[in-house]
Amino acid sequence: MDVAKLAELLHETAEHHGPFEESAPPHNWWDWYAPYLDARLSGRTPEEASRAAARHMEPILHGGG
């Protein structure tokens, strides 16, 4: 992946993380970014990637991860 495409994907990731960050307890941003980026690189839509990241965060935010 070239740097410009990566920058675009990171920007998209930040935009989708914003609403989650506003409503979630304090957390490390990279715990949300990693599954989001993985899902997008696997061909999932931004909405699917957001759901995947949120699912990944559940045990982390509730003491199980």
Score class of each variant (00 low, 15 high):
E58G: 07
L61M: 04
G63F: 00
I60N: 02
S23L: 06
S23T: 00
E22Q: 06
E8W: 01
F20P: 07
L10V: 04
F20N: 03
A39P: 07
H17P: 01
N28G: 15
G63L: 00
G43F: 11
S23E: 08
A39Q: 02
N28V: 14
A4D: 15
E48V: 03
Y36G: 04
A54T: 09
E12Y: 00
Y33K: 15
G18I: 08
P35T: 03
L61T: 02
A53H: 01
H62T: 11
E21N: 11
P35S: 04
E22L: 14
V3C: 05
H56T: 06
E8Q: 04
W29N: 09
H56M: 01
V3F: 14
L10T: 07
A7V: 07
E12N: 00
N28S: 15
P19K: 05
P19L: 01
A49K: 09
L6Y: 06
L61W: 02
G65L: 06
R51T: 08
L6D: 13
D38C: 05
W32H: 12
M57Y: 03
E22V: 09
T13K: 03
E8P: 00
R40L: 14
S42T: 10
W30I: 15
W29F: 12
G64W: 02
A24T: 08
A7G: 07
A14E: 09
E58F: 05
